[in-house]
């Protein structure tokens, strides 16, 4: 019993002593009350699971440039919505509607992406536990 406790104790200590550099989160959480529209030049694309990322260079009124990341669904979900990797290229101007991250970082949950050809696709990550898509339909009439 003592040997068991010692060995298990060591394993537990080893697991929590591991370095925890949490400054870069894998999936930022978003705020339903802070919608935003970004218009910018696409600088890079990560067409990956579990999330895709579209990096935009956004220019403000003073001409200052900041880079934003827009998090979307994985390749399977995007392709099922008619959005393929070849629809966009680095250098394209994209309009991305989404929600700001609670952490305040320059990353948004991309709910809607307007492509260079004018098409709009849903970029949202379904079932991510984040805010519901309030833009999906107009307020329902009272019964």
């Amino acid at each position: 019993m003592k040997l068991r406790a010692l060995v298990l104790g060591l394993a537990l200590t080893a697991s929590v002593a591991a370095p925890a550099s949490a400054h870069h989160s894998f999936a930022a959480m978003y705020d339903a009350n802070r919608p935003i529209r970004l218009v910018g030049r696409l600088t890079s694309v990560e067409w990956t699971n579990p999330h895709s990322y579209f990096h935009l260079e956004v220019r403000d009124a003073q001409g200052r440039v900041t880079t934003w990341a827009c998090e979307g669904a994985g390749p399977g979900a995007l392709s099922r919505r008619g959005f393929s990797r070849s629809d966009i290229s680095v250098g394209d101007t994209l309009v991305v509607d989404g929600y700001l991250a609670k952490s305040g970082g320059r990353i948004i949950d991309a709910r809607r992406i307007t492509l260079p050809d004018g098409r709009s696709v849903s970029g949202g990550t379904p079932g991510d536990g984040g805010p519901g898509d309030a833009a999906a339909r107009a307020p329902r009439p009272q019964a």
Binding site: L12, A14, S15, V16, P19, A20, A22, S25, F26
Partner: peptide
């Protein structure tokens, strides 16, 4: 470097 991933691996061990 995700803390939950690290704890999970520790728990698996």
């Amino acid at each position: 470097d995700n803390i939950f991933l690290q704890v999970k691996l520790g728990l698996l061990l």
